[in-house]
């Protein structure tokens, strides 16, 4: 009979490298609304990345600039004229700070996510594969941190690292490390459970039977198969990193406005403005944040759906007339058909 397809390779390993790249291969697999969501996510995310790269060209002023040749910037000036999106209570140009903010965001994302992937993957692999007491202790610790409000963990870490605000590099590192601590348990859990699942797969057992060493099994057989879902977690966590950093900034654990532009800090400053109806100081950095997060999440979720055969929509067969009934029926049929 049709055997359940246990491991569906992410992409044909021999297809051209370009077509195997995570996002490209997903694009080719997608249809209809799912493709729409993926494309929307891609557009927003690329806009975010490009803005960060070309911030020096795009921003009319520096992030800490308070005056130009014509003298000091006015405070709380409404959008229009020289300051397209207005100025803040401190006299910063809102547009410039929104644009420069992308750089800070991207730096924190990259540092935080890379660090947490690196540590989380190693811990997850070792813990899941070796098992025993090491595993149990790590699981209890990871679960304790995971269940705890991530913002509070980040606050505690921010206190530990910097005792509060600091310079650009210090601030970014503080935010990044705080976020890293929040994320490690997530990567740890994902990789560990994948490792445990793979450990029981016949292909790992068959390596064990022929006498492969633990290191060989972990590196050659488990690592690559366990880390297939990482691009997905990366995009989802990138958006969470932005939110956590903004939360820290909002509570006053961000980066000094003179060191870098940071959306959370700007929103904190703008909070007092709202009661007097001054909306532009808060709305624009907030929108920048929402668009970035939504872009990254759309991309991540689309990838997730496309990776999961149960959630993936498929093109209809040639003549376009639907089957008699809706619903997710017939996963078994799909399996039988595709295995034939």
């Amino acid at each position: 009979m049709s055997t359940p397809t246990t491991v569906e390779p992410a992409a044909d390993p021999r297809a051209s490298l370009f077509r195997r790249l995570p996002v490209i291969s997903h694009f080719n697999k997608s249809v209809g609304l799912q493709r729409g969501m993926l494309v929307a996510g891609l557009v927003l995310t690329s806009a975010f990345v490009l803005t960060a790269i070309f911030a020096p060209l795009l921003a009319p002023y520096g992030y800490a600039q308070l005056s130009d040749a014509d003298g000091n910037f006015p405070a709380q000036e409404a959008p229009g004229g020289k300051h397209l999106l207005g100025t803040t209570v401190g006299g910063y140009d809102v547009l410039s700070r929104v644009i420069w903010g992308t750089q800070t965001a991207i730096m924190v994302i990259v540092v935080a996510v890379l660090m947490s992937i690196f540590i989380g993957v190693i811990l997850g692999l070792v813990s899941g594969y070796i098992g025993g007491w090491l595993d149990r202790i790590l699981v209890v610790i990871a679960d304790a941190i995971y269940a705890f409000p991530s913002l509070l963990v980040a606050i505690v870490m921010a206190i530990v690292i910097s005792g509060g605000q600091s310079s650009l590099l210090g601030g970014i590192m503080a935010a990044a490390i705080s976020i890293t601590v929040v994320f490690i348990p997530q990567y740890f859990r994902v990789i560990r459970s994948e490792t445990i699942r793979l450990k029981a797969e016949p292909f790992v057992e068959s390596a064990k039977v022929v006498g492969a060493s633990n290191i060989r099994i972990m590196s050659r057989h488990i690592y690559k198969n366990a880390t297939r879902t990482l691009p997905l977690i990366f995009t989802l966590n990138a958006s969470e990193a932005i939110l956590t950093m903004a939360g820290l900034g909002f509570l006053g654990f961000g980066i000094e406005p003179s060191s870098a532009a940071e959306w959370g800090f700007d929103l904190k400053q703008a909070l007092a403005d709202t009661t007097s109806g001054i909306w532009w100081t808060g709305v624009f950095p907030g929108l920048a944040m929402v668009l970035t997060v939504v872009g990254l999440t759309l991309m991540g979720e689309s990838i997730n759906d496309l990776n999961d055969p149960r959630l993936r929509g498929r093109k209809k067969a040639a003549s376009g007339k639907g089957g008699p009934d809706s619903g997710a029926a017939g996963a078994g049929i799909q399996a039988e058909v595709s295995s034939s």
Binding site: M37, L243, F250, L267, T274, T275, W279, V283, M289
Partner: peptide, 25 residues
């Protein structure tokens, strides 16, 4: 489904203090 999913993403993609600020405004 597509509308609801985008709605969900916007919901949890909006920092709660920004959402609060918009609602207040």
């Amino acid at each position: 489904d597509a509308v609801l999913r985008v709605f969900a993403i916007v919901c949890y993609g909006t920092p709660v203090f920004f959402a609060g600020m918009l609602l207040k405004l």
